[in-house]
Simulated scan of single mutants.
Amino acid sequence: MNVPGIPKGSPAPAAVAVALMLALAGCSAGPAPAPPSSSPSSPSSPSSPPISSNDALHPFDQAALEETFRETAQDLRVPGAAMLLRTPGGNLSYAYGVRSFGGSDPVTSADHVRIGSITKTWTTTVILQLVQEGKIQLDDPVADYRPNVPNAANITIEQLLTMRSGLYNYTEDQDLNQVLDADPGKAWTTDELLAVAFRHPPYFAPGEGFHYSNTNTVLLGLIAEALDGKPLTAAFRDRLFTPLRLTGSVFPEQASNAIPEPHPQGYMYGTNVLTLDHPALPKDMQKARLDAPRPVKADDPGGALYGLGIAKFGKLYGHTGELPGFNSFAGHDPANQVTLVVWTNLARTPDGQDPATTIARTLIGKIYR
């Protein structure tokens, strides 16, 4: 088991932090209720509204949900994990395990963890707000803002958001992953990351396929910073964290990549090389966003869906995030008013699974009929 330490030195620019599997990302804590015990035998402290009459949902069963969460985390060999569930029938905040492998310090729902690509949804929200403000359009060519990008004249902002630009995903580069393993504290600049991406040919012509690429979101972050006239750190604070009262969420300043206390230690099996895989929006804009997810594979309409910086998991809209040592899932079902958040201080499992996503998938099976 590899133990990624907290990177030292100055981090990459803020826009880099939205990238998957790099050493810098947004950090988030739960809503900080009284932290529940991580002991399986101890009760958690959820609020308990009346049982839901929503026919789409199973009756709220706190004990069964906690048992499913614990058993799945144990099966996945996760040192520590936490979950937050809100439904019309009841709410649940629960933590399992410990902050460090072999330790005794329990995980709590107030712990901060790196949330990785969940920040893609943040970046997309800022871009969509800039669209509302008339500063950018979804059908604008990338060349209007970043002319040195390959195929920039033929890639639209929407194709960056929907992962249909064809641009190479720099986190699939073998050399980059070797550096991550040898020097996990290296401060990557956006220029370095984009140079890695651009020395590889595109996967396909713009709009002619789907390929998840962190390069897209780095470009969106840089474009957002230029149009908003401030670092992404400040844009997230002013546009998202402050109005939504997300007091436990942080996007690190460029001068620091430390995780705020309290936080668990993150773990991973193997190395990056060994695990290498190839203001609220108005109703019309939000509807367009929720209508955007399309099948990742055209021949599998029942499979994964991805749209404007947002994915769909059954009835839940949201995103997953992974960085060395941490995995997270956040989803919301607006029709049934269900919110589910899961994080683990392990990524990935010995057999290559994303533990938080796997736990969330198991819980979803218990939440919905």
Results as ranks from 00 to 15, higher is better:
residue 96 Y to E: 04
residue 251 F to R: 08
residue 178 Q to A: 12
residue 93 S to T: 14
residue 264 P to W: 02
residue 26 G to C: 10
residue 104 S to Q: 14
residue 29 A to V: 07
residue 349 T to A: 09
residue 43 P to H: 07
residue 104 S to E: 14
residue 145 Y to N: 04
residue 258 A to R: 10
residue 63 A to Y: 03
residue 5 G to K: 09
residue 318 G to P: 08
residue 123 T to F: 00
residue 103 G to E: 12
residue 92 L to P: 07
residue 255 A to H: 13
residue 260 P to D: 01
residue 362 T to P: 01
residue 18 V to E: 09
residue 264 P to T: 02
residue 267 Y to W: 06
residue 222 L to Y: 00
residue 319 H to F: 10
residue 34 A to S: 12
residue 8 K to V: 09
residue 267 Y to N: 00
residue 321 G to A: 09
residue 351 D to W: 05
residue 176 L to D: 01
residue 150 P to E: 04
residue 54 N to F: 00
residue 69 F to R: 09
residue 181 D to I: 06
residue 26 G to E: 04
residue 321 G to P: 09
residue 358 T to Q: 11
residue 109 S to G: 06
residue 85 L to H: 13
residue 183 D to H: 10
residue 299 D to Y: 04
residue 156 T to M: 03
residue 159 Q to V: 05
residue 275 T to Y: 06
residue 357 T to P: 00
residue 40 P to V: 07
residue 346 L to N: 04
residue 231 P to H: 09
residue 73 A to K: 01
residue 279 P to T: 11
residue 261 E to V: 11
residue 18 V to P: 01
residue 102 G to R: 13
residue 94 Y to A: 15
residue 45 S to M: 12
residue 151 N to F: 05
residue 22 L to N: 12
residue 84 L to W: 08
residue 170 Y to M: 15
residue 72 T to G: 03
residue 127 I to Q: 01
residue 233 T to E: 15
residue 328 S to T: 15
residue 245 R to Q: 15
residue 139 D to W: 02
residue 336 N to L: 07
residue 325 G to H: 00
residue 30 G to S: 08
residue 60 F to E: 03
residue 132 Q to I: 02
residue 61 D to M: 09
residue 149 V to S: 03
residue 20 L to H: 14
residue 55 D to H: 13
residue 51 I to V: 12
residue 101 F to H: 11
residue 179 V to M: 08
residue 355 P to K: 06
residue 204 F to D: 06
residue 183 D to R: 08
residue 78 V to W: 06
residue 181 D to Q: 06
residue 311 A to D: 09
residue 11 P to Q: 11
residue 358 T to D: 07
residue 136 I to N: 05
residue 252 P to I: 01
residue 223 I to H: 04
residue 43 P to C: 08
residue 69 F to W: 12
residue 167 L to R: 03
residue 228 D to Q: 13
residue 241 F to S: 10
residue 236 F to K: 02
residue 315 K to D: 14
residue 205 A to H: 08
residue 65 L to V: 10
residue 125 T to Q: 11
residue 266 G to F: 00
residue 104 S to V: 13
residue 287 K to C: 00
residue 281 L to Q: 06
residue 63 A to F: 07
residue 127 I to G: 03
residue 307 G to H: 04
residue 122 W to F: 15
residue 105 D to H: 06
residue 119 T to Q: 11
residue 115 I to A: 10
residue 280 A to L: 14
residue 300 D to Y: 03
residue 285 M to E: 13
residue 109 S to I: 09
residue 113 V to I: 14
residue 160 L to P: 06
residue 308 L to R: 12
residue 12 A to I: 12
residue 228 D to L: 13
residue 47 S to F: 12
residue 143 A to M: 02
residue 319 H to K: 15
residue 91 N to L: 10
residue 88 P to I: 01
residue 296 V to T: 14
residue 324 P to L: 10
residue 164 R to W: 02
residue 304 A to P: 05
residue 314 G to N: 07
residue 65 L to T: 09
residue 100 S to H: 12
residue 84 L to I: 15
residue 165 S to F: 04
residue 99 R to Y: 00
residue 323 L to C: 00
residue 24 L to M: 02
residue 279 P to K: 05
residue 13 P to W: 05
residue 185 G to N: 01
residue 7 P to G: 04
residue 214 N to C: 13
residue 157 I to C: 02
residue 191 D to S: 14
residue 342 V to C: 12
residue 365 G to D: 11
residue 330 A to M: 13
residue 237 R to Q: 15
residue 24 L to Q: 11
residue 251 F to N: 10
residue 288 A to V: 06
residue 245 R to L: 14
